[in-house]
Amino acid sequence: MATIANSLIVIVLFSLISHGLCVTCTNKNIQIVTTRSGKVVHGKPEWNVVVTNTCKCSQAMIKLSCKGFQTVEPVSSSILSEIGVDTYQLINGDSLAPGAFVKFSYAWDSPSSILPADSLSIPC
């Protein structure tokens, strides 16, 4: 009897996983693309950044590693807020839906290295 029950549990779990119901998102599902806008702000080239959630589920508490980030063009704190040395919180920790993106621009001599550092997967 226990063998049949264990087999059923394995079948149910496999079914859930194969249908995408057991999805866990990570910061690896956060895509960041930086491109030059062509504008100049206070003598510095402007850079456009698009942060996209590529996972099937929402993610929250998205933290970005922005080593040496500087800008002469203000970025709204509702989009990007510094929470530690070279660490920034995206959209105040609010959730980013599957496929959703956040855009911001900054101006500096060269593009900063902006990488996903952490996120919280929201079950879907």
Rank of each mutant, 00 (worst) to 15 (best):
1 M>F: 14
2 A>W: 15
2 A>K: 15
3 T>Q: 12
3 T>A: 10
3 T>E: 11
6 N>M: 14
7 S>N: 13
9 I>L: 13
10 V>D: 06
11 I>H: 11
12 V>S: 08
14 F>E: 09
15 S>G: 14
16 L>S: 07
17 I>V: 13
17 I>G: 06
17 I>N: 10
18 S>H: 11
19 H>G: 09
21 L>I: 09
24 T>G: 05
25 C>S: 12
26 T>Y: 12
28 K>Q: 08
29 N>I: 08
30 I>K: 13
30 I>M: 14
30 I>G: 11
31 Q>P: 04
31 Q>M: 05
31 Q>I: 05
32 I>S: 12
32 I>L: 12
34 T>E: 12
35 T>G: 03
35 T>N: 11
36 R>C: 06
36 R>P: 09
37 S>R: 14
37 S>D: 14
37 S>I: 12
39 K>M: 08
42 H>M: 11
42 H>W: 11
43 G>R: 10
46 E>T: 11
47 W>R: 09
47 W>Q: 03
47 W>D: 04
47 W>C: 06
49 V>H: 13
49 V>I: 15
51 V>Q: 07
51 V>K: 02
53 N>T: 06
54 T>Y: 12
55 C>Q: 11
56 K>L: 10
56 K>N: 09
56 K>H: 12
56 K>A: 13
57 C>Q: 09
57 C>G: 03
58 S>F: 01
60 A>D: 03
61 M>Q: 08
61 M>Y: 05
62 I>H: 08
63 K>A: 01
64 L>R: 01
65 S>P: 01
67 K>R: 13
68 G>N: 05
69 F>K: 07
70 Q>F: 07
70 Q>C: 03
72 V>M: 13
72 V>Q: 07
73 E>G: 11
74 P>Q: 09
75 V>R: 14
76 S>A: 04
76 S>R: 03
77 S>E: 09
77 S>D: 06
78 S>G: 03
79 I>E: 00
81 S>R: 09
81 S>F: 03
81 S>C: 02
82 E>A: 08
83 I>T: 01
83 I>W: 04
85 V>L: 15
85 V>P: 10
86 D>R: 07
87 T>Y: 05
89 Q>E: 00
89 Q>H: 00
90 L>I: 01
90 L>E: 02
91 I>F: 02
92 N>R: 00
95 S>H: 09
95 S>N: 12
95 S>L: 08
98 P>T: 11
100 A>D: 15
101 F>H: 10
101 F>E: 04
101 F>N: 05
102 V>Q: 07
102 V>Y: 09
103 K>W: 06
105 S>R: 14
107 A>Y: 13
107 A>Q: 14
107 A>E: 13
108 W>K: 12
109 D>F: 09
109 D>W: 10
110 S>W: 07
111 P>T: 03
111 P>Q: 07
112 S>H: 02
112 S>N: 08
112 S>P: 05
114 I>R: 03
114 I>Q: 03
115 L>G: 03
117 A>Y: 00
119 S>M: 02
120 L>V: 06
120 L>H: 09
121 S>R: 00
122 I>R: 01
123 P>R: 00
123 P>K: 01
124 C>Y: 04
124 C>V: 01
